[in-house]
Amino acid sequence: MARRDAAQAPRGAIKVLNNNVVVAVDPQGGERVLMGRGLAFGLRPGGDIDPAKVEKTFILAQGEQGERERQILASAPYAVVEAVSAAVDDAERFLGRRLGRRLVLAVIDHVQFALERLKDAVRIPTAMPEIRVLYPKESAAAARMTDSIGAALGVVLPEEETVFLTMHLLNVTRGMPDGATTLLFRRVRHVVATVETELGVTLDPDSADYARFVIHVQFLLQRLVNDAMLRNSDVSFLEFTKHTYPRSYAIARQVKTYVVGATGTELTDEELMYVTVHVERLAQQVSGGGQDTRC
């Protein structure tokens, strides 16, 4: 998203999308979407655009993606565009980096669907405490965005929106392709849920052991994708762990079965050993045991 620049703003409208949105061509021949309250009121194609009324400028992508972006901006109420733009500006200051057009458009599109769900009283349960542990900075920025957008629009957005907005931020800040973030957290959540079920507890997401476990699972899954799993030819450590912590080893084996089914890749013995040790730490946290199994 570009800030207003009256000196460079195209003056001739080629398409009026609604009272607040027009499409114009810049001096380099690229299409831009110009937005501002009442910018296009009474304006016809070819008419002069008043640069003083241009509040926001979006440089469109090429091809089908550009057409989708145009549709998003044409269908979005201007109040949503303003609310999202202000929230992204705040997130940029909070994170200390530019976030760009891609995030603004993705969040505008997302917020429109969120408002429709809110109107229809439809909730999408998304309990992912892991995301706050793994990416505290992006999660905090997303929480600020959720509050800011809700306040600007006069609604209370459900807490799950913070999770969704965190994922949008991660797609930009971590360079993750669309869908990769969601898939990673689904897999982390499944592993955590498996451990919780087998231990018969709900783990404390604010505990240090929980944070270590979640971070380890994330790195394990990333090592697996990058074909860089931990390997050690000495199996004695795994045998010691297996016999010392049989219950935790059995749970780790279940995690291994899930990972194989989800990714088609076997965990190495060393990866299995470390999962076992982390599960044992969680088991001792739950039982109040004090034996240190730090890895």
Rank of each mutant, 00 (worst) to 15 (best):
residue 198 E to D: 14
residue 224 L to E: 04
residue 211 A to I: 05
residue 231 R to I: 11
residue 201 V to W: 10
residue 232 N to H: 14
residue 204 D to K: 07
residue 217 V to P: 04
residue 214 V to A: 11
residue 227 D to H: 04
residue 239 E to T: 02
residue 232 N to Y: 13
residue 200 G to E: 06
residue 209 D to L: 11
residue 210 Y to F: 15
residue 212 R to F: 12
residue 236 S to E: 01
residue 205 P to A: 02
residue 204 D to C: 10
residue 226 N to L: 06
residue 238 L to A: 07
residue 230 L to D: 01
residue 227 D to W: 00
residue 235 V to G: 01
residue 237 F to R: 06
residue 221 L to C: 01
residue 204 D to E: 10
residue 230 L to V: 12
residue 199 L to W: 04
residue 213 F to Q: 13
residue 232 N to G: 10
residue 198 E to N: 05
residue 219 F to Y: 12
residue 227 D to T: 06
residue 233 S to F: 14
residue 223 R to H: 07
residue 221 L to P: 00
residue 196 E to C: 10
residue 227 D to S: 10
residue 216 H to C: 05
residue 216 H to D: 05
residue 233 S to Q: 15
residue 206 D to S: 15
residue 197 T to R: 11
residue 196 E to A: 04
residue 222 Q to L: 06
residue 197 T to I: 02
residue 205 P to R: 02
residue 235 V to A: 04
residue 235 V to W: 01
residue 222 Q to R: 15
residue 201 V to P: 10
residue 220 L to N: 08
residue 237 F to D: 09
residue 198 E to Q: 14
residue 201 V to H: 02
residue 231 R to M: 07
residue 213 F to Y: 06
residue 223 R to Q: 07
residue 214 V to C: 11
residue 202 T to K: 13
residue 229 M to R: 02
residue 219 F to D: 10
residue 235 V to Y: 01
residue 196 E to P: 03
residue 210 Y to G: 11
residue 238 L to D: 08
residue 217 V to A: 11
residue 229 M to F: 04
residue 224 L to A: 03
residue 199 L to I: 05
residue 200 G to D: 08
residue 213 F to A: 02
residue 223 R to K: 08
residue 208 A to D: 10
residue 198 E to L: 09
residue 196 E to I: 04
residue 239 E to G: 11
residue 227 D to F: 05
residue 207 S to T: 09
residue 199 L to K: 00
residue 234 D to Y: 15
residue 233 S to L: 13
residue 218 Q to N: 03
residue 223 R to W: 13
residue 209 D to K: 15
residue 201 V to Y: 07
residue 230 L to P: 09
